[in-house]
Design a protein around this nucleic acid. Structure first.
Lengths: 236, 236
DNA sequence: CTATGTCAACTAACATGTTAGTCTACTAGA
DNA sequence: TCTAGTAGACTAACATGTTAGTTGACATAG
């Protein structure tokens, strides 16, 4: 049980975000937690955050309430708030939920896709190929995210992306720990290509199979990670 | 555009709920909105709610923030908050998301079920049969809800039920409008039975097919409803 | 040395005061 | 009569003050 406070110097200023103050504080805190600049177990002190960001306790409270709802912080009433530890149970559940949404999406897109959408998918995958060639891992990560976001966007359901992001926040945070996996980009690219091929052929079952295989590559890596960094996982 | 205020006399006292004040206010408001005691378009006034429930504006604000996040109210900054109108787009999306989660759940349960879980499902379906026989529609509705909750519970993923509920809140509210459909209970029962049969046989594909068919019965009924009650649907 | 009880300090939750943006109704002008 | 401008009332958002519950350290007893 660490008693360390969060390091508020890692917080980006709220000027970097838009929306209400509460929304900005929320985004700033979420970014710090997901990027692991706030470590699991660290105590989240409203006072420090207010001071650093130059806002009162109201928007900070609202932001923390939302983070608590997402499971990124654990609030102990009348006592303290801590950055949530990783939990394999949460990550497994997030993976399951994410897969459910991704599979439904890709099947629908395979059925309903337009030629314009197909062109956009091809463009994205070709971009990925370039980035792999250039060894631009950060760029590839972003293109990867965009690939999945694009598929969800093509369903025509605007909240889908938000829900998918919300249910798999813990997974996203865990992914941050295993970013630099050199050989993986090539494989990922091939898996994406397989999905796109099935979507091109308007074959929902094949698209689901390809996506299921692709997503299935993640969990084993996270499980390996849990062995290496037990300090970040909950020991309740 | 209605200018009617909500009728706070329809709010249950917060003593009926548990948790923090904010949580109780949230539950009370959500109940009133989902049961259509607060009609779409009605203005949600913090002052009235504070007075009726005997709490200050803080917990009410937090509750409204959550409802806004769920899409049950529309907040206009610095101006007013209204009960959200029905939106066919939202309902269609909710149905899609719900189906994605239900299909993934029922497939997993069909694969992994224990005999004890099977017994519980059978018990629930037999209860449904009794309630249909007795023409107890309210009881049947509850058993129906429990049936779906049970399947999600059996996946072993605790947040699943919450997420499924959240994404389909609009659908739940719309269902309230078409509750008394006499002949429907029999059909519903048969569809549930088909799902249970496939789970018994540990046949994930058949279970998904049965569930897909079952869920597919809802949307056409809601669409018919939108024709009958255009006043409840958005006309932005 | 260990276990238990007490107390002080700190926190989240809640109440209340303040600010600024939005809507509406009234008025004045065409 | 209809449009445009304006002022006032009302609201959500934000700031700040207050309350009560939890934690953890320390002292005291076993």
């Amino acid at each position: 049980m660490t008693n360390t406070d969060i390091d508020v110097t890692n917080l980006r200023e709220i000027g970097a975000f838009e929306g209400s103050l509460a929304q900005r504080v929320y985004l700033a805190l979420q970014e710090a937690i997901l990027s692991l600049q706030f470590l699991p177990g660290a105590i989240v002190r409203k006072g420090l955050i207010c001071e650093k960001l130059g806002v009162s306790r109201s928007p900070v409270s609202e932001a923390i309430a939302r983070l608590s709802n997402e499971g990124l912080v654990d609030v102990v009433p009348q006592s303290a708030t801590r950055v949530a530890y990783f939990s394999m149970d949460d990550i497994r559940e997030g993976t399951f939920l994410r897969e459910a949404l991704e599979l439904a999406s890709v099947a629908k897109v395979a059925r309903d896709r337009t030629d314009e959408q197909m062109a956009q998918l091809n463009r994205n995958v070709r971009l990925q190929a370039l980035l792999v060639e250039d060894q631009d891992f950060a760029g590839f990560y972003q293109a990867d995210e965009e690939f999945h976001a694009m598929l969800m966007h093509f369903t025509g359901y605007p909240r889908l992306k938000t829900v998918a992001r919300m249910v798999s926040l813990q997974v996203t945070r865990a992914r941050m720990l295993l970013l630099p996996t050199p050989g993986r980009s090539n494989e990922t690219l091939e898996e994406h290509q397989a999905v796109v091929d099935a979507v091109r052929d308007q074959n929902p079952e094949a698209a689901q199979d390809a996506m299921r295989y692709h997503l299935g590559q993640l969990m084993p890596r996270i499980e390996a990670l849990a062995e290496k960094r037990p300090d970040l996982f909950q020991s309740r």
